[in-house]
Simulated scan of single mutants.
Amino acid sequence: MTNFVSVVGTVFVDCKGFANEQYIALGRNLGSIQFVHGGVGRNVVENLANLGLSTALVSTVDDSALGEEIKKRLTQAGVSLEYLPAAPAQGMGMWLALLNEHGELVGSISQMPNLATMQHMVMQRGEEIVNASSHLVLEIDLNEQISRHMIEVASRYNKPVYGIPGNLEVILQNLDLLTKLDCFICNNIEAEKLVHSDFSDLALGEKLASLQTYVEEQGLQSMVITLGADGSIYYDRRTKELGYQPVFPVDVVDTSGAGDAFFSGTVMGLVRGLKLAEAVIYGTKVAGWTIESKENNCQELEAKMQQDDVFQRLLVK
């Protein structure tokens, strides 16, 4: 089967405020405010499409002009919208983000969409979606019903599932779901709730040891933890790949969307058959290019990928 990735996740509209000078939490901050397309699922599927993979988004949008605008942009990127129905209200979420003068996130509030329409579609068409896909991406914190159903159907069809967390609410109550993923990718803050309560304060060698122990003891297939500006670590229980990937130099504009971008690049590498140690290089590159953009997605991914020597060496392997 030709690679075709279905992404099950949310669509958001993000309101971002960028401070011109030093951000003061309780003061007035001059800057700029932008509305951009967001949501973990939407971010990831656009990235994957711009990186050259055939994709579909399994989600919902509002039955509104803004919903149509989001669908138009995804269509232009080449994303299939067969599984993207419009809901009368709350088909999309909203995310309010504040960024300091360095483009670093300093505060946020999320309003989740109503998942009823998405859940109904997944329960009715989940087998069809999985059967049409070579690989699946799952925003695993949607709700237990959606996550468990998609993972169980994918398991029956022997289709790899790559998991990305939302708020950990579902994961923390259903840790067995992680064992059914081909790869799970999270950040260091999330790792503190899963791997080790003091994870962020550990030395690199201790982080690697904690990750390996967690994956082995919990029975995960593979896991990657991003460390922000410090890079990422990874472990594959099947191949015993354990390692560290540093970041590449970037000019920081906006760090929001970087985690979704890292996930997207890494998943693209895995879908193309790369080892985990090579796939995280993709992820690191895509995250860096996204950090240099004010949007949640770098609109020049295809061009940057073609011009990057590291990317091209991996692609021809």
Rank of each mutant, 00 (worst) to 15 (best):
F4K: 13
G9E: 01
V13I: 13
A19W: 09
A25H: 14
A25V: 14
L26M: 15
G27F: 03
N29K: 12
N29A: 12
L30M: 13
G31E: 04
F35I: 14
H37V: 09
H37Q: 15
G39Y: 05
G39T: 06
G39S: 09
N43L: 09
V44L: 12
E46T: 08
E46R: 12
E46F: 02
L48T: 07
L51K: 03
S54L: 07
T55W: 01
L57A: 09
L57F: 12
V58H: 03
V58P: 02
S59H: 03
T60Q: 12
V61A: 11
D63A: 15
K72P: 00
T75M: 09
A77L: 06
S80P: 05
S80M: 05
S80W: 02
E82Y: 05
L84F: 09
A86S: 15
P88M: 10
P88K: 13
A89T: 14
M94L: 14
L96W: 13
L96P: 01
L98T: 12
N100V: 11
G103S: 07
E104R: 10
E104C: 05
V106R: 10
M112R: 15
P113R: 13
A116R: 14
M121D: 11
M123G: 01
G126M: 04
E127M: 09
E127I: 09
N131H: 11
S133Q: 08
S133L: 11
E139F: 02
E139Y: 05
I140P: 00
L142T: 09
N143F: 06
E144C: 04
Q145N: 11
S147C: 02
E152T: 14
Y157Q: 15
K159P: 05
V161C: 08
G163C: 11
G166W: 01
L168F: 15
I171V: 15
Q173I: 00
K180C: 05
L181I: 10
C183V: 08
C183F: 04
F184I: 07
I185C: 10
N188R: 12
I189P: 00
E190I: 00
A191T: 06
L194V: 06
S197N: 08
S197E: 10
D198A: 13
F199K: 02
S200L: 04
L204R: 13
G205P: 02
G205M: 06
E206S: 11
T213P: 00
Y214F: 15
Q221T: 15
S222P: 03
V224L: 12
I225S: 02
I225N: 04
T226S: 12
T226Y: 07
T226W: 07
S232V: 00
Y234Q: 03
Y234M: 02
E241M: 11
L242H: 08
G243F: 09
V247G: 05
V247D: 00
P249W: 02
V252R: 03
D254M: 00
T255L: 08
A258R: 04
A261W: 01
F262T: 02
T266V: 08
V267Q: 05
V271T: 10
R272Q: 15
R272A: 03
G273Y: 10
L276R: 06
I281C: 06
I281L: 09
T290Y: 10
I291S: 06
E292R: 03
K294R: 15
E295G: 14
C298F: 04
E300F: 13
K304P: 09
Q307T: 12
D308F: 07
D309A: 14
F311R: 00
Q312A: 08
L315Y: 08
